[in-house]
Design a protein around this nucleic acid. Structure first.
Lengths: 342, 342
DNA sequence: CTGAAAGCGCTAACAT
DNA sequence: ATGTTAGCGCTTTCAG
């Protein structure tokens, strides 16, 4: 690793000048400029980002906290985050909390504000206290997918109207003529998917339909979780004609369960999910789902974070404004092959 | 962000002492120690990792270059990398090259050796020249999944015997009684999957079987790619009873194609892949595949990289040893539901 | 056991 | 147009 001053010496100038040509700051004579560039080339010099970060008082990275990158939804999101982050020269550090608040805290303590300028939080099951502390230390935090635009979390966030997503899904099923509809909720009862379920209930009630508790299952947010829940549901009520899942993964599991039970989707059973992950297009039949603006959310999240980094909110001001919230465009129904008229 | 010296001042000591207690270096009196800890707590102090990195001349991160984190295989790998990296206090920066050597170079130029101590390369389609330059600059590079243990790439690497994987897959099909077997190769003809295909050919030849060119397709390494290729294959040879794909994703696509063509898997068509990604267990029927030791490869890769970081090879020594190569344990066949006797 | 001081590689005024 | 000079926050000898 050669350094700035080595380059400077070789070019017969001072390091300030080298810095200037490298960053196109200040005026530099064309010839010196050339000599510097040659020296850079000759020495295979690259600026030391950590040193630069220290000198500038900023960092070229942001952290993305997720519960586990192995959940197929997150990579899609992470990819979008990275794309957007690159625009401002930020690298992204992926932090897998594995749903463990302790691991999450460890990450925040180490990274936030030192290695990374800010942190994006995506369903990582973090302690809000830790998040506030992180903010207080000067590292902006933004929640990437807040599920309730009508109920701000007290932290900057990107909100997606997931209640609406639930409504849309239920309405679709109802319009198709389904009445006995089961629900699989991919979280604990008042967990992250609660508002999706509420939306579902809303639409059902509006149509004069009840959802008895025995038609609802809470399950892990995975294909396997959906599979188990769906089997359970289907075995308890052979007349159920449709199943709504709060996420695509359990919906996919539901299709498998149906297949194993000899029920054809969509003929015997309609299935709908939420999100529209890539896999949703690739199942047989392709999954009908309510698409959520993932990429948009990612871009907004990075943009908001950047903004917070640029214009730090005064931490101890008397008139602390409410944390900013951006709402994405609305979720929309994508009809594919897993639902049909009954 | 409070700093070391602020903490020092508050504790009535000097920053060297604070540094010592924080890192358990040097001897520190118990009482001073306590006072320092209190000050740290009171100020909500966290060490500035970039500053520390600069002072120590090392960095707390490693970079993982992948073509796109959205390919479902990579997140599994990335997760394992991260777990292992954490053990030595390294964070991982994900670099999506998007198969673009130019993007890859840009990443290497910026990150390697400054923000991150070393780089892990996973099928990122990088220029070997760039990789060598990176190394020369002092940032160790390791290739994470080299496909041919018998043909070292001239860079440190983790090798997986993918030729064997191809053989295992073919043998399984042959033992099941299949003779007319199609192949879908998930790369360009002499691309990354070549050795898997060679292994397949080997086993076929050994069994006295030919693979006419018309029974082979080169396709993108995706579900969709496999789907298209399989349809093509099946429509050209209605008597084909099995298809071997060099990767799970195209194998999954093959199953979809079969379904759409009214061919039952495994009754009418056996399908086998390579890798054993999580999705392989979750298809209907579950996919028979040759499992590759992903997690092991990830761990070895990080370990090797760490080693290279610790003990830098002299770059210009006369007796430059051949770059180190670690070979993982062997791939092994996992029989599930997508293959059967014919 | 603790303090003083130098320096990691770079940037950013301020001089010249 | 280029050089000088201070740091950024931390670690690390080396003294005391």
């Amino acid at each position: 690793m050669s350094t700035l001053s080595e380059v400077a010496r070789r070019a017969g100038v001072t390091s300030a000048t080298v810095s200037n040509v490298l960053r196109n700051r200040g005026r530099v004579g064309e010839q010196t400029r050339q000599r510097v560039l040659e020296a850079v080339e000759a020495l295979n010099y690259r600026p030391h980002l950590a040193a630069r970060a220290l000198a500038e008082g900023r960092a070229p990275t942001i952290a993305l906290m997720v519960s586990s990158i192995a959940n197929p939804f997150y990579p899609e999101f992470a990819l979008a985050v990275e794309r957007e982050a690159r625009k401002s020269g930020h690298f992204v550090i992926i932090c897998n909390t594995n749903e463990d608040p302790h691991a999450g805290r460890a990450y925040l303590d180490q990274i936030a504000g030192t290695l990374s300028e800010g942190v994006l939080v995506m369903n990582a099951n973090l302690d809000f206290d830790d998040l506030h502390k992180t903010q207080a230390r000067g590292a902006p935090v933004v929640l990437c997918m807040w599920e309730r635009p009508d109920d701000p979390p007290g932290l900057p966030c990107i909100a997606v109207d997931f209640r609406l997503a639930g409504q849309l899904a239920a309405k679709h099923l109802i319009e198709l003529g389904h009445r006995r509809i089961g629900a699989i909720v991919g979280s604990k009862p008042s967990g992250i998917h609660a508002s999706r379920y509420e939306g579902f209930i809303d639409a059902m009630r509006e149509a004069g339909l009840k959802v008895p508790a025995k038609n609802v299952r809470y399950a892990p947010d995975t294909i396997q979780g959906g599979y188990t829940a769906a089997r359970d549901l289907l075995e308890h009520d052979a007349n159920m004609t449709a199943i709504f899942a709060t996420n695509d993964l359990p919906a996919l599991g539901t299709m498998h369960a149906a297949a194993d039970l000899g029920r054809n989707v969509p003929r015997d059973l309609s299935v709908i999910g939420i999100t529209d992950i890539q896999l949703a297009q690739q199942s047989r039949p392709p999954l009908t789902t309510v698409a959520v603006p993932t990429v948009e959310a990612a871009e907004l999240a990075v943009t908001l974070l950047r903004d917070l980094i640029e214009r730090p909110t005064r931490k101890h001001g008397a008139h602390q404004k409410a944390p900013r919230m951006c709402v994405t465009s609305e979720p929309r129904l994508i009809v594919r092959g897993s639902t049909q008229k009954r």
